[in-house]
Design a protein around this nucleic acid. Structure first.
Length: 434
RNA sequence: GCAGGGGUUCCCGAGUGGCCAAAGGGAUCAGACUGUAAAUCUGACGCGCAAGCUUCGGUGGUUCGAAUCCACCCCCCUGCACCA
């Protein structure tokens, strides 16, 4: 077996990736040998979003350091719903739906770890496999007996649900912790898994598993939590005007994904480089120092966007994202050929075909229809401020009733395309109907 | 089941008969400034280009007029009781 990288924990620490760990520093010693660790991902949608990227990449870091990662997809826990730090009880998803999501998430998670590297090849498991056949009575006797309700009620993660006026917690969600604890114990028994990692909100669930494993199997296992990703301005990480940033290219195109990282605030970008890339910490420090030297636009955002887009969408996804970005933000769009425009559409630039009778509609209607703005008022506002550009030409409110002149064939790029820009960053490609 | 407290526009949260499409804050969008930043300032922010239309858990009612008052219903929370 390949040697184990003893500096792993130190590197994680330097990256700011360690929030809490069990075992009073004995974890370092434990990790001197190749170990098996796991992290769970619950299927709450058909794709993970970038909130799961930190644990996913951390699994990869452990694997790179010589440990064996298990990605657990919560086919069972996903049916229940984790109450940890959630303000409200969640509605249950249908079993068939969750089962479908499990398959999607399995595939997604698999991109990030190596399944063919000998001893420490990764595994993907589903916790439904050991809970499906479990009877309630067995569960209550073999698992429930080890948990103290007094103790559970005092967990910080459910406190607000128990104390807060106006919200409660069902027995179902309250039991979530037992299921997750069972996972750890089960993985310990089956595969000798001795470490669970997860977000900081998982601390209670993880220590539950550590305790259960000891009680059921007298096994010594560890837990490690990663920090919650926060932004300096206090707004929620991973959301933009257009919603959540997903890992699935069908939900968030590589272009949009790349743009998300490119728009990272200066105050966050170096931290994110440490969290989300494999660039050496010393090198990140150098980038930061260099950016400080130069006034003007920092390099960090570009590096971050490239690295993360490559990790998630591969070289091709990155190339597509950069191609579109270059064309829209620095190139002259009138230079684009029909082939280029076609490519931009394939690369994920939002696009649509103008309806046959588009002249009957107002410009406002057409842009709303295309999804460029949620309401006509916003388009109107933009038109009134000269914030709408069609093929580079500003279009004002006076042209609203005359889309025919705005989208006239003789002004089209390559005879049939229009690139409409609303505001600084929202682009849409329109194509004339044949 | 009983008692008490609640359900307001994306979120928080004011509003208890007209001055309410509904304070304030947050989030979001657009403009200026910039670096496709941040901070700041400005405008928008139920729907509609507009005239206008539809909202304050639901349904009826009182009233010239209701988010605000009344009745019934639904849902949530807290406590008590019942099941034990």
């Amino acid at each position: 077996m390949a040697g184990v990288d003893a500096t792993l924990l130190k590197d994680l620490d330097r990256r700011g990736l360690i929030n809490q760990a069990t075992g009073d520093g004995e974890l370092a010693q434990h990790l001197a040998e190749s170990r098996t660790l796991y992290c769970g991902f619950d299927p709450t949608a058909d794709s993970l979003h970038i909130g799961s990227l930190v644990p996913l990449l951390t699994l990869k870091r452990f694997q790179a350091a010589g440990h064996k990662p298990i990605a657990l997809v919560g086919g069972a826990t996903g049916l229940i719903g984790d109450p940890s730090f959630k303000a409200q009880e969640r509605s249950l998803n249908a079993p068939e739906v969750v089962a479908g999501w499990v398959e999607k998430i399995k595939a997604q998670v698999s991109q990030f770890v190596d399944f063919d590297c000998g001893e420490n090849s990764a595994m993907v498991v589903n916790n439904l496999d050991w809970t499906r056949e479990l009877s309630v009575l067995d569960f209550l006797r073999d698992v429930g007996k080890y948990f103290s309700v007094n103790n559970m009620v005092n967990k910080e993660s459910v406190k607000q649900r128990i104390q807060r006026e106006g919200e409660g917690i069902s027995f179902t969600e309250f039991s979530y912790m037992l299921l997750q604890s069972m996972d750890f114990s089960e993985l310990y028994k089956r595969y000798g898994c001795t470490l669970q990692i997860g977000g900081s909100d998982q601390w209670g669930n993880i220590t539950g598993g550590v305790d259960l494993t000891r009680r059921q199997h007298r096994g010594r296992v560890f837990g490690l939590t990663l920090p919650l990703v926060t932004k300096a301005d206090g707004t929620k990480f991973g959301k933009t005007e257009s919603g959540t940033i997903w890992l699935d290219a069908k939900r968030t195109s590589p272009y949009a994904f790349y743009q998300f990282w490119l728009n990272t605030a200066d105050a966050d970008v170096y931290k994110f480089l440490r969290y989300f890339t494999f660039i050496d910490v010393d090198e990140i420090d150098e980038i930061e120092a260099a950016d400080r030297e130069h006034s003007g636009k920092p390099e960090a955002q570009g590096i971050l966007a490239r690295e993360v887009t490559r990790l998630v969408h591969g070289e091709d996804g990155l190339a597509a994202a950069e191609r579109i970005s270059r064309a829209l933000f620095s190139g002259d769009i009138s230079e684009l050929s029909a082939g280029d425009l076609e490519q931009l559409r394939l690369d994920g630039l939002p696009s649509s075909r103008l309806p046959q009778q588009f002249a009957d509609n107002s410009l406002i209607h057409l842009l709303v229809e295309a999804g460029m703005a949620p309401s006509g008022k916003q388009v109107k506002d933009a038109l009134g401020r000269n914030a709408v550009l069609v093929n580079g030409e500003a279009v004002g409110m006076d042209r609203n009733g005359d889309p025919q002149s705005v989208f006239s064939a003789d002004k089209a790029l390559a005879g049939r395309f229009f690139i409409v820009r609303l505001g600084k960053k929202k682009y849409h490609l329109f194509e004339l109907a044949d």
